[in-house]
Amino acid sequence: MADLKYYDVILKPIVTEKSMNAMSEKKYTFSVHPNATKNQIKEAVEKMFTGTKVVSVNTMNLEGKTKRRGNTSGKTSKQKKAIVQLTQDSAEIEIFAGL
């Protein structure tokens, strides 16, 4: 397994209706590197977004979907999602502020 730096851990934010509703509870959803651990995700969020303190990290491993095109079938790549819970006195994450 390659050594992951904190800027390689978080790939992109996940913006869905469910994740937007969870932001009122200071829970933010990110797509993360498949080999990232919970401690690496916590460290990456606290370093990338100043003023944030992470309480907990919940992760989900998503298997690739089976896709068909004619007689040929294949799978999409695996993904990993992380839901990060911030403390109540923590700063908001700016990328979600305008949404």
Rank of each mutant, 00 (worst) to 15 (best):
E43K: 04
S31P: 02
M23W: 05
K18G: 13
V32C: 00
S90M: 05
L4I: 07
Y28Q: 12
R69T: 12
V57L: 13
A82Q: 08
F96K: 00
E17R: 15
V9I: 03
S56A: 12
G70I: 10
A91S: 15
S77H: 12
I41K: 05
N39A: 08
N71Y: 04
V84N: 06
G98H: 13
I93T: 14
L99Q: 04
T37L: 07
Q85M: 04
V15I: 15
L86W: 03
M1T: 14
F49N: 06
M60V: 05
G74A: 13
A97V: 09
M48H: 10
K80Y: 06
E63D: 06
N21T: 13
L4S: 04
E43Y: 09
L86V: 10
M48I: 10
I14T: 03
T37K: 09
L11K: 02
M20L: 08
F30T: 04
K12P: 01
V32S: 02
Y7A: 11
P34L: 00
G98N: 15
M20I: 04
K67C: 11
N21K: 14
K42V: 01
R68T: 15
N21G: 13
S90Q: 02
V57C: 10
S19V: 08
K18H: 13
H33I: 01
G74R: 14
T59S: 12
L62N: 06
G64T: 08
K53P: 12
V9A: 08
A36M: 03
T59R: 07
G74Q: 11
P13Y: 10
K65F: 09
